[in-house]
């Protein structure tokens, strides 16, 4: 990587499916320790790009580096150095809270000793010690999402990818979730997050907005609001994504 301050570097990323171009020459960098919002309409190409950045799919062309590793030749190293949380699936319903933690930590190769002590710390911090042996299916959604995030950063990844992490939760839980994101960023974990809540875009250090496979804008929320002359990110998003 040319600039050590950048944890993700994307140059000319193109991904085609047949004659459909899902990612059309994307170029951007994500700085170490920042909260980077990756916004776009449904079908704009966000998921395609995230899958490539996570080492789950190859780009058609372009140069990409994530946490110091190349997405063509070092995909396993990328996977070991990132965390991932999706809204749809994150924890196993038929395992307990403690079992889910042990399972994910084990996959990332943490030792039994480390897993044990960090699990206790984590459950204490989340106030979930008493329900550690409860099945995930019996845990309320808001708690599950906080736990899923904690599990995604349990192995201290360089970057954590969050794909619509706050869908459907109440406004208090949503804010508590963002406080956890802020804490993780303060500890040096880079956060790459997608959301449909435009107020959450304001919590990001910088935001990119994808439209039809291209990055239509990338800046701090303050600068974007100024450039598009609106009071909130919703205004910025509607202007760009609607093309009016």
């Amino acid at each position: 990587m040319e600039n050590p301050e950048n944890i993700i570097v994307v140059n000319n990323l193109v991904k085609r499916y047949g004659d459909f171009t899902a990612n059309d020459n994307l170029c951007f960098e994500v700085r170490k320790g920042e909260i980077f919002g990756f916004l776009g309409a449904n079908g704009a190409g966000k998921t395609t790009a995230i899958r490539i950045l996570c080492g789950l799919s190859y780009p058609t062309s372009g140069e990409l580096n994530v946490a110091g590793f190349d997405v063509y030749t070092q995909r396993e190293l990328i996977k070991r150095n990132i965390g991932y949380m999706s809204q749809k699936f994150s924890l196993y319903d038929d395992l307990t809270i403690a079992e889910n933690i042990r399972f994910y930590a084990g996959i990332y190769g943490l030792s039994q000793k480390v897993i044990k002590s960090r699990t206790n710390q984590l459950l204490e911090r989340l106030g979930m010690e008493e329900i550690r042996n409860r099945l995930i299916r019996d845990v309320p959604l808001g708690w599950k999402q906080k736990l899923a995030f904690s599990v995604a950063v349990f192995h201290n990844p360089a970057v954590v990818f969050l794909d619509e992490p706050t869908g459907g939760v109440d406004p208090v839980t949503r804010r508590q979730f963002w406080e956890m994101i802020n804490e993780a960023a303060e500890e040096g974990i880079t956060v790459f997050v997608t959301t449909h809540y435009m107020d959450e875009a304001e919590y990001c250090d910088r935001v990119s907005i994808m439209v039809d496979g291209k990055i239509a804008a990338l800046d701090t929320p303050q600068n974007l609001k100024k450039s598009y002359n609106t009071n909130d990110m919703n205004g910025v998003f509607l202007t760009l994504a609607r093309g009016d």
Binding site: A41, N42, A44, Q87, H196
Partner: peptide, 12 residues
Amino acid sequence: EPTTGVDAVSRV
């Protein structure tokens, strides 16, 4: 919940 998971433009 017809608009859950739907982007801000489609929601409008």
